[in-house]
Design a protein around this nucleic acid. Structure first.
Length: 877
DNA sequence: GCGCTCACG
DNA sequence: ACGTACGTGAGCGCG
């Protein structure tokens, strides 16, 4: 029997839209719904072996149901713009694939599906209807199967319904399903139903009386009385609803099975669409590059014989392009994976004559060839003596530069995004096992994972290089990001010494005070409760104590510091709560928190991540050493526990207002540049110029306001944000901004040009070519679009500053090593570098820091730095 | 796992 | 009318 697959277009598109995370191609087109639709389509076609295929869509025009009932809405709920724009796109894609699109004025897609399904069933076809709408179950028949995709725990399963399945799940036949719907109504379709009859009552009534007509025949006996009364009063509604709910199966639709005959979906036109929409994995199905299913399987060969291994390594050395991954973690090497041909990879597990140091040594040698691509170079550096001068290409970092907005850059991500291959991830293959355990217990999966890693590094290398070059990021990649990998590894490896006893003592002091404050707060509120629970705290303050503060968050009252701070003068307990918050924060995150990271060498080895931020900054984790307290005196004390090793001191150098200087340079604003050339205090001179007053007459308040405006400019100014920050009206904030832009007109035109560029190109760039896509600018949502505008203004500034300090870091680290100094770069905090400096090298290091930070970039204003020394981090700031 | 809060630049 | 300043990471409470 030949098979016909019919798809409910809007319904599946809608499901896909909400089920697939936001996607945009580089033109800024939203594509997630189309992507999800195609995936469902291909999945069903793979499973069904369909012979015919057609997709039905609703039209905008009113349908016969509107003629019956004015308030009828049909299945078209208001559609978000992001989805709406994908409807015509979806139709174009289907047309390009040769799939007929069925529409009929005056009818909904349901009616088209119903009509054709019943008609073709009669003609002897096996019909499958794919929809996300349960209402379609009424069409289920001997040879009509309804498929509803259902998502549970992240995975989508398709449930199939023949009539017996409908009965099993809903106790009623497909025909009776209509009657149930008529009784209970449907909010989304605006089918009125009978008031006060819900799904349960409706189902039991239909089970008992089969249909509406029969219910009314036996109305006297109907129970419960509530239902009886409602049915009595609303007979007209019930009968109208029955007509509205019934899908039409004899609509005047012309349809020829010949048009729906499935021949070849994979047309060149459709392929062009897949490329344009950047659906790599779908494009790959169309025949280019590596195929998901139909292509040749990769061979992952386990090599355990020493001489075979050695021969392969020698062969690899002669290749001009190889991919590798050293599978090493927790201080030990498990295997090396190597790939230098399209057919697959070789995996060399540690064991026998192939010792850890042999494997690591071979990895090192192959890295030194200068034509190796790896997935994560920094991870392998503890096992390989590589440094500046060894050019090893890192695929993760390359993928990050090409799209810094992603969460992960694993081999599976790169295989998907660059190669159009869908491959199982590490978690899919070895769950949460370590490499060591996986290699021992799940050798097949481990081998496959390792093989995929090396193959991905190998195959993605060239396309990644080409894309970086095409997007103007070759220099950024080669001269900044790749060398930085070594710098960051050195910092991680070096770590920073922390005095555990002092940290514990500091924590003890905090804990004592916390206990006191807790007691006082409980007494003052007359209740023992968890002060750290915003929920409990909000209820006590704003309900029990009747403090007026109003709701602010989705979940309840806001108890954030800025809210409480306003209330503190009137309620003594609020001050205590703020103090309590400060103490507990310091205790849990810093005193106790940092303590757990001190290693046996007495040092904390934080990780510096290179592929996290959207702007190009680095981030620090486990623990985060970029947010150690400094603004409040009590918190600042904690810096005293960070100390240099014996015979060393700390030198701390930070850029003075690097972001504003970057702004002055990039905008080319003459007055701002001039301001930097003449004045020491940029915020004061801003106040002087903006408010037209002599510099020496600027009041502290005026300076503070000017400083806030300067910050605002860098953040992508908004009157609202500035007004919040300064606690002034939006009108006043607006005036400040206007005055600022009058004073520095080129800053205004520069920021405008950034937004315009972002709107046209979909991204902004830093001075060094780093890109940040800004998809939010395409949003129909005002808030999101405004966010996009601020991002377009901020990212080039923040990103350029990040580029500059990265250059400085590399040069400082490289010079310390090349000049055989013992001093080491140990931390970076966005505009600040901390060096553990040998006492006798102090002057040299000061000179190096000063020179390299100053000359990291050549701007129209000088890059000035402030430097301090000390015997701990507290003193060195 | 997510929202809130708060530490930093 | 909408409801925000930009970029991060960690700990806690809660469902």
């Amino acid at each position: 029997m030949e098979k016909l697959v019919l798809i409910d277009g809007h319904s599946i598109l809608n499901r896909a839209f909400y089920g697939v995370p936001n996607l945009t191609n580089s033109e800024g087109l939203h594509t997630n719904a189309v992507y999800g639709f195609l995936n469902i389509l291909f999945k069903v076609l793979d499973e069904e072996k369909a012979d015919y295929l057609a997709v039905a869509f609703d039209l905008k025009a009113p349908t016969f149901r509107h003629k019956m009932f004015d308030a009828y809405k049909g299945t078209r709920k208001p559609m978000p713009e992001e989805l709406h724009e994908q409807v015509p796109l979806m139709k174009e894609v289907l047309t390009a694939m040769g799939v007929p699109i069925l529409t009929k004025e005056g009818y909904e897609a349901d009616d088209i599906l119903g009509t054709i399904a019943k008609r073709e069933q009669k003609d002897g076809y096996e019909v499958t209807i794919l929809s996300g709408d349960r209402d379609l179950l009424q069409l289920s028949d001997t040879h009509i199967r309804i498929c509803l995709p259902k998502t549970s725990r992240g995975t989508t399963e398709v449930h199939n319904y023949y009539p017996e399945d409908v009965i099993r799940e809903y106790q009623v036949t497909p025909e009776q399903f209509i009657e149930v719907k008529a009784l209970m109504g449907d909010q989304s379709d605006n089918i009125p139903g009978v008031p006060s009859i819900g799904e349960k009552t409706a189902t039991s009534l239909i089970v008992q009386y089969q249909n509406l007509e029969n219910i009314y025949t036996h109305l006297d006996e109907v129970k419960p009385p509530r239902a009886k009364k409602a049915l009595e009063e609303h007979r007209d509604l019930a009968e109208l609803s029955l007509k509205l709910a019934r899908i039409c199966v004899d609509a005047p639709i012309e349809f020829s099975m010949a048009d729906a005959k499935l021949e070849n979906l994979y047309t060149p036109e459709a392929y062009e669409y897949m490329k344009r929409l950047e659906f790599k994995s779908i494009a790959a199905r169309f025949g280019e590059g590596i195929r998901n299913e139909s292509g040749p399987e990769k061979q992952f060969v386990l090599v355990e014989d020493f001489s075979e291994a050695d021969a392969l390594f020698e062969k690899a050395k002669k290749e001009d392009h190889i991919g590798m991954e050293l599978l090493a973690e927790n201080g030990s090497v498990t295997a090396l994976a190597l790939s230098f041909e399209e057919t697959g990879s070789y995996i060399f597990p540690v064991g026998g004559f192939m010792t850890e140091s042999y494997i690591a040594g071979k990895y090192e040698e192959l890295c030194r060839t200068g034509h190796a691509w790896v997935l994560d170079l920094k991870h392998s550096l503890p096992f390989a003596k590589l440094s500046y001068g060894d050019t090893v290409y890192d695929a993760g970092v390359a993928a990050y530069l090409l799209n810094p907005l992603k969460d992960t850059y694993g081999y599976d991500d790169i295989a998907r995004d660059v190669l159009g291959m869908t491959v199982p991830s590490r978690a899919d293959l070895i769950k949460k096992m370590s490499y060591k355990d996986a290699c021992a217990k799940e050798q097949d999966n481990f081998t496959r994972m390792a093989g995929l890693m090396a193959y991905t590094a190998f195959a993605a290398g060239k396309p990644l290089s080409e894309r970086l070059a095409a997007e103007g990021m070759e220099d950024l990649y080669r001269n900044i990001e790749l060398p930085l990998i070594y710098t960051l590894f050195h910092m991680e490896d070096e770590g920073i010494a922390v005095r555990r006893e002092e940290l514990t003592a500091y924590g003890g002091k905090l804990k004592k005070q916390i206990a006191v404050l807790e007691k006082e707060i409980w007494e003052m509120t007359g209740q023992e409760f968890n002060i750290n629970s915003p929920k409990q705290l909000g209820e006590i303050l704003f309900e029990k104590m009747q403090i007026k503060g109003g709701k602010k968050t989705k979940t309840g009252y806001s108890t954030a510091a800025d809210v409480l701070e306003k209330l503190a003068p009137d309620y003594p307990v609020i001050r205590k709560i703020l103090d309590y918050r400060q103490y507990t924060k310091l205790n849990s995150t810093y005193a106790d928190g940092l303590g757990t990271y001190i290693k046996e060498d007495g040092r904390i080895h934080s990780r510096f991540n290179q592929t996290i931020t959207a702007t190009g900054r680095i981030s620090s984790t486990e623990p985060n050493l970029q947010n150690i307290p400094i603004r409040m005196e009590l918190g600042r004390e904690i810096r005293k526990v960070f100390v240099p090793r014996d015979g060393f001191l700390f030198l701390d150098a930070d850029y003075s207002q690097i972001e504003l200087r970057v702004l002055a340079h990039m905008s080319g604003d003459e007055r701002l540049i001039e301001a930097y050339k003449t004045a020491q205090d940029i915020h004061a001179i801003t106040a002087s110029q903006v408010f037209h007053i002599p510099l020496n007459e600027v009041t502290p308040l005026q300076r503070r306001n000017a400083k806030a405006v300067n910050f605002g400019i860098v953040y992508g100014i908004s009157a609202f944000g500035l007004s919040e920050d300064l606690s002034i009206s939006r009108k006043e904030a607006m005036e400040y901004i206007e005055r600022y832009f009058e004073t520095y007109p080129q800053v205004k035109s520069f920021l405008d040009s950034l937004v315009a560029h972002a709107k046209e190109q979909g991204y902004v760039t830093t001075m060094f070519g780093r890109r940040r896509p800004v998809p939010e600018l395409k949003s129909s949502n005002f808030m999101q679009r405004s966010f996009g505008e601020r991002v377009a203004m901020n990212s080039p500034i923040q990103g350029t500053a990040a580029d500059i300090i990265k250059i400085a870091m590399i040069r400082v680290d490289e010079r310390l090593r090349r000049e055989n100094l013992r001093s080491r770069l140990i931390l970076q905090v966005h505009d600040e570098l901390l060096i553990e400096t040998a006492e006798d090298e102090k002057e040299t290091v000061m000179k190096i820091l000063s020179e390299e930070m100053h000359h990291a970039a050549s701007l129209k204003v000088e890059l000035e730095i402030d430097m301090h020394g000390g015997k701990n981090w507290f003193e060195a700031k």
